[in-house]
Simulated scan of single mutants.
Amino acid sequence: MSGLYPLRLSVTAKPLVFGGHALARRLGKRGIPDWSVAETWECSDVPGAQSAVVDGPLAGRSLRQVVTEYPAELMGAGWSGDRFPVLTKFIDASGALPVHLHADDEAARRLEGQPNGKTEAWHILEAAPGATALCGVKKGVTSDRLRAALEAQDFDAVLRRLPVRAGETVYVPGGTPHSFGPDTLVYEIEQTSDIQQHAMRWNMEDGSPVGDAEFAANLDMLMRQADLDSRPDFTPGLRIPVGDGVERVFLCAGPYFALERWRAAAEEPLRHSFATAQILSNAGAPVRVRTGGWSEELGRAETLVLPASCGDVEIGGPADVLFGYLPDLDRDVRGPLLDAGYPRRLIDALGPAAGGAPGRAGRGP
């Protein structure tokens, strides 16, 4: 290993109106405030909510400082960029999220003055029977009809309502109007950004009303960014057995991020090799994580960033963990799945398969 080591990061807790107490009481997350929490930002380089290293020689440094000082060691050989490119969150949708969208890259630069948009994916950890999500505009809905329905707050008239099941994942491109909840727990992975446009008459921070002029301005901007043709669907992921008692599931993959879920039985440790930084989040009971000469416990709903220079990790079973990362799509996703016998059409369903250059190793975000 280099001077870098597995990084424990500070977590930002967001007290938004749709949250509750499920992150602590159901996922077992510790160290968060004892009030309603909607989101915990586990790995973030978003201005105003930047994670910082909390232990070891780099304690106190922001994630931005680490990626600036150790770009190749953290992200992989040849990588360049000015910030950590992937954001991850646990989300407690005890209530329904507001209907909103995030700009894609082009709209973010043209309309928001931001360097990139915010494509995201939701992996469902828990969902009550009958839980649903709104995701994408119904086929045939025109821009005028969408605007009129949003003004009337008649969302089901124009947006697709999808069933939500634990274990499934949906890749949501920028520009897609969406919402999920209530009674849903989600692990979200996305581009590093906090841009968003809302279609609600209330503020998600405190539930206060949005005035008519502000609401109209919000809808104006949302309609300029909306993609009426984006209709993503949930998928169960693609499974690959890894030794006895270890399962690797590719949940989603595209140019901006990939997400995998690994499970190991008690008898078999989980071993994973990698060439780019891994955001390791624990979806199960506490586990022992080892890489090089480093070994520590990772508790329930806790997160580590494993630098690329670590190269591999071993996690003792039983284990149920998530790996999020910026992929080289051919090396990290397509290659293993094609070798396992999956056809290209199923691999493509994990997320955009074409135009992988933004997320390939050696390229900046």
Rank of each mutant, 00 (worst) to 15 (best):
K14G: 02
E267N: 12
L58R: 10
L125C: 03
Q278V: 14
F323H: 12
P336H: 09
F90C: 08
P318D: 01
W122N: 11
V54D: 03
L101C: 02
E106V: 14
D105Q: 05
G175T: 01
Q191W: 06
T169K: 05
A283T: 03
C252E: 07
G48K: 06
A301Q: 09
P47T: 06
D34F: 01
A133F: 05
E106N: 00
R25W: 03
P71L: 01
P15I: 09
T119V: 09
L16G: 00
A226T: 15
P71Q: 10
G56Y: 08
I240F: 08
L9Y: 03
R161A: 11
L7V: 05
P129T: 09
A24K: 14
E42G: 10
A285P: 00
R109N: 05
V37P: 00
D348I: 00
A361W: 03
I347M: 09
Y325R: 08
T235Q: 14
Q153L: 12
Q196V: 12
L87K: 04
R248H: 13
A152T: 04
G136M: 06
S230G: 11
W294M: 07
D330R: 12
P47K: 04
V289A: 10
T303W: 07
A216E: 14
V170Q: 04
A217N: 11
H123Q: 10
F155Y: 15
P236A: 12
P182C: 04
A157K: 11
H21M: 13
G211W: 02
T291M: 01
L185R: 07
H123D: 06
L346Q: 15
R363C: 09
V170R: 03
G181F: 01
I315W: 05
V289P: 09
L101T: 05
D144R: 14
V17Y: 08
N203R: 15
A107P: 00
R25Y: 01
A77R: 13
A108E: 07
L338H: 13
D348G: 04
R110Y: 04
G299M: 07
D348F: 08
L238H: 08
T276D: 11
R224F: 01
R224Q: 15
S10H: 05
F323P: 13
C43F: 04
V289F: 02
G140L: 02
Y187W: 12
T88G: 03
L280E: 10
R334V: 14
F257S: 08
G254P: 01
I195C: 11
R8S: 12
A258L: 05
A275F: 01
P129Y: 06
A308V: 06
L185G: 06
V289S: 09
L280G: 05
A93M: 08
T235D: 05
W202Y: 15
R248L: 14
W202I: 07
F274R: 02
C310Q: 14
L111A: 02
D144K: 10
L329S: 11
A72V: 05
E151C: 03
A275H: 13
G254K: 04
G356T: 11
T184R: 05
